[in-house]
Design a protein around this nucleic acid. Sequence first.
DNA 1: TAAATTTATGCAAACGTTTGCGCAAGCTGT
DNA 2: ACAGCTTGCGCAAACGTTTGCATAAATTTA
Lengths: 352, 352
Amino acid sequence: MSNPPKSVSEKRARRVKLSDVASASGVHYSTVSRVLRPGFKGRISDDVAERVRAVASELGYQPNAVASSLRTQSTRSIGLIVHDMNDPVYPPILSGIESVMSPDGYAVLVGNTGYGVDAELDLVNRMASRLVDGIFLATTRLKDPAVERCEQLGIPLVSVLRQTASGHTPAVMNDCFWGMEALTTHIIESGHRDIAVIIAPQDLSTAQERWQGVQAAMNKHGLSVPKHRLAHVDRMSMDEGERATKALLAAAPVSPEVIICVNDLIAVGAIRACRDRGLRVPTDISISGYNDIPLMDMIDPPLSTVHIHLRQIGKAAGEMMLEYLSNPDLPAQTKRVKPELVLRGSLRDLKR
Amino acid sequence: MSNPPKSVSEKRARRVKLSDVASASGVHYSTVSRVLRPGFKGRISDDVAERVRAVASELGYQPNAVASSLRTQSTRSIGLIVHDMNDPVYPPILSGIESVMSPDGYAVLVGNTGYGVDAELDLVNRMASRLVDGIFLATTRLKDPAVERCEQLGIPLVSVLRQTASGHTPAVMNDCFWGMEALTTHIIESGHRDIAVIIAPQDLSTAQERWQGVQAAMNKHGLSVPKHRLAHVDRMSMDEGERATKALLAAAPVSPEVIICVNDLIAVGAIRACRDRGLRVPTDISISGYNDIPLMDMIDPPLSTVHIHLRQIGKAAGEMMLEYLSNPDLPAQTKRVKPELVLRGSLRDLKR
DNA sequence: TAAATTTATGCAAACGTTTGCGCAAGCTGT
DNA sequence: ACAGCTTGCGCAAACGTTTGCATAAATTTA
């Protein structure tokens, strides 16, 4: 019946609050608030302000952001939703965003969807519940329920890397069409004709644009990709690239001259699969990637790819978010950042 | 180009709150709270509960986490402090943490210190201000003001990868001493005698243990590292590795047989620097890393290194945090996870 | 059938800020 | 000296929950 005596738990140290500072300096706590609130000017005499500030720092006062948020309806926190932080494209974006938002006092809440569309919507709801001031969505699908939900809730949204079909979402993207068309053109001009392609789900604008870029370049040269030279991956990982490449190599008796991969990780998987099949890269088969993630210059062979300015895109997205936060009625704008061709050793020149 | 559906002065949509649901279902809002609060059992009749739930979902009610946090003094959010998310060791840790904390409703706030100790303390303060329920510190120094601050504030802390000098901090670490000693022993047993080492700042337990591991193995074989075979890096990046290696190669007329690097990124930089100097790896010089980050099996030459179970460490850290959150009086425990030697092509066997 | 107990709900006080409003002083100008 | 202004600060009401306590109704017990 008798309860065991409650253990002498050292409670979470009592935080000093406004009223503590107030009584210690002999003023009302609203005065303390006015003194300490950044960007509050005038209205309080200098000597009082100074005294309050002294007491506050002596007592080690730190504002309670939760209480402040409840009152001001702004949490100074923003969400970043990605497929999987383990994909090396995302950390530089996070860095970029942080570098512009953090100085303004924003904290970043990251969420991984694991490529799930339900998880994505769930994350938006959870972040909305936490009253984030805005959301960066890097998983934007051409038709995306998460985007609709944000609009419905009135949460400022900036789409990163990708864009919706309507194009009505504020977004900072890489120019994937341009990049992939340029890369494909280079490949064709190096003499390749039997071209295989590994593409990603076409409900992502990045995947769609890259595939369209390939097709545009090939059309321009009177070429096209036959069905047996086309493979699909569900997500961006080396394993998926390996699997798709094996399917590709098994689909026809003779292997293609080159495999254009939607992304570097896929390309690395492709290199692995080719080696497994005894094919030398690029002697027997050429391979290209996209993104130019770190280490692509160090692998064997060094990967020819398209360099995306990820950090710059992150910074631009952060700046765009700041704009929308200060002016919610701004019309949606899309910024496209041009990538750069990076030619290394994984592509053979058949002309020589 | 059509214009976006411009809604008139689209304010942030008014959130439906408890009292809305209450008046719509004809009960007091406290009743609604009791019905909706997860884990509240009994006390409310089934028909009322059902009606309230129906109204709530019809109105799309989502609790205001900020208000809830203010009342309950718990934000269900935790902080993760790292040096730099661009270092590939951190994303798997984040994944691991998220995989165990997210199902319990915790959100993760990430902060990058950029290797700054002031930034670290600042991050702790900012997170404390936001009332995070706990902090994962992956930047723990042997003597760390941030750790002290957390203790002082009573914020549950789990140190990840590293440990303080006292060892009194809850922590999940890799057994760096064991790993580096094993690797070094292997290197010595492969016939290497002229061994160079690139180490990191010794105020980090990881760096310290690895260096001690090297020394222990060498002592056991009657060897030691002369001053001109020792180089230092300030942070973990390829550039730093390249710089340190160049210093190493310039410090003596004859190059060492092997360079043991504190970390994979440093090793990659070392490979680059050696190539720059016209040295072939591993024919002319051997190189080893530590961590086994992704792609280390694909670079040229494939890197011999020590594999850390990063995701597993993240999960263990998450579980430990959950324990401390539910029982703050638990004594500090340190969990060490054993790594694995991964031998690939970057290490030459001088015995054959 | 009254008393005692249980059950289901309402009431109102927190949680720690921010901020509009009001009111004393102190000042200015006539 | 007095009306009007300005300045500096206190007062108290929010913000949207959670939760101890009170209470009315329903049920059981004596």
